[in-house]
């Protein structure tokens, strides 16, 4: 991780030559930040496992195996054995396969929920920040109300409103939790853009209002929102797991999900605590990975941190 003096000097010269865009500058700083590297490795591993889960998992999520079921009786759940490195669960299914396949659900729910929340938040934040006036007042009071409710409570309320719990209701519930955060953040940075010199300059050139907003304000305002999205991914994963844990998640027993696995493991804590440990550990590590990456991304993109 140590860069030699000569290397650093060369980079300095490159800098002065002015060949760096904002993004490549940020990338350069990310590469030097050990926290960012740890975060990126965790997130990278998680994404690879999740994407290739069906190929990596030795067995299906709903498959039961006679050799695991054989030892299954009250007070005993079989541990690791030949072909099943993490042992089986209370129904004789391969626990390793379920752990791997669950990562896919987690990624899917986390990313989709964040993207949906981000999209809605960007629309609200842009409208409020760019136009101000009563549009701003109405939109911001609504987000205030949403922000006032603790996020998990809000997600539970939304998920509970649905007729039957499903993966879709989890995604929607978690997405709604993210909306007010994104909207507020974007509105704030849009406001600071509104009277910035280059926006006035663009207006002075007769650029149309929508173009001023979309080309000159939004791209300059969106940075902190993108950073927030990586941080929100972590909370989205936690919230989704929490909903499943509380029984408001995916009702399909064939699909593995860390939150649900954790909930089911509760019953067998004294029998085989590992069943609770693995999913809990996975949730924590993945959430930590996204948080580390998000935090260092924020630092890397902060123009004040620039040397």
């Amino acid at each position: 991780m140590t860069t030699t003096w000569a290397q650093r000097r060369k980079e300095r010269i490159d800098d002065l030559a002015g060949g760096r865009s904002l993004t490549s500058e940020a990338m350069r700083r990310l590469r030097r930040d050990p926290v960012a590297i740890v975060g990126a490795v965790i997130v990278g591993l998680f994404v690879v496992i999740a994407v290739f889960a069906p190929l990596l998992a030795p067995h299906g999520a709903a498959e039961s195996f006679p050799e695991l079921q054989a030892d299954l009786r009250p007070g005993n759940i079989p541990g690791a054995q030949e072909g099943f490195p993490l042992g089986g669960d209370q129904l004789g299914r391969d626990f390793l396969s379920r752990m791997i396949l669950a990562s896919q659900q987690t990624l899917l729910v986390g990313v989709l929920a964040t993207l949906i929340g981000l999209a809605i938040g960007i629309v609200i934040g842009t409208l409020a920040g760019a136009f101000g006036g009563w549009i701003d007042t109405v939109l911001m009071r609504v987000t205030d109300v949403l922000l006032a409710i603790p996020s998990l409570l809000l997600a539970i309320s939304v998920a509970a409103l649905a007729a039957s719990p499903s993966q879709t209701t989890v995604i929607i519930a978690v997405a709604i939790v993210g909306v007010p955060i994104f909207a507020r953040l974007l509105r704030g940075s849009m406001l600071s853009q509104r009277n910035s010199d280059h926006v006035v300059a663009a207006t002075a050139l007769g650029v149309k209002r929508p173009a001023v907003v979309l080309r000159h304000m939004l791209p300059n305002a969106i940075g902190p929102v993108i950073v927030q999205a990586t941080l929100t991914l972590a909370t989205a994963i936690l919230d989704a797991a929490a909903l499943s844990f509380l029984g408001l998640g995916d009702a399909d027993p064939g699909r593995a999900e860390w939150g649900l696995m954790l909930a089911q493991a509760q019953t067998y804590l004294d029998v085989r605590p590992a069943l609770a440990f693995y999913p809990a550990f996975a949730i924590i590590v993945v959430a930590l990975g996204f948080t580390l990456l998000g935090e260092s991304l924020r630092e890397a993109l902060d123009p004040k941190g620039r040397r």
Partner: peptide, 19 residues
């Protein structure tokens, strides 16, 4: 604006869109 009458501002760095 921009077609008939136009303006040059004081600080060229902040008056150009950075992105």
């Amino acid at each position: 604006r921009g077609r008939d009458l136009s303006m040059v501002f004081q600080d060229p760095l902040s008056s150009l869109n950075p992105v």
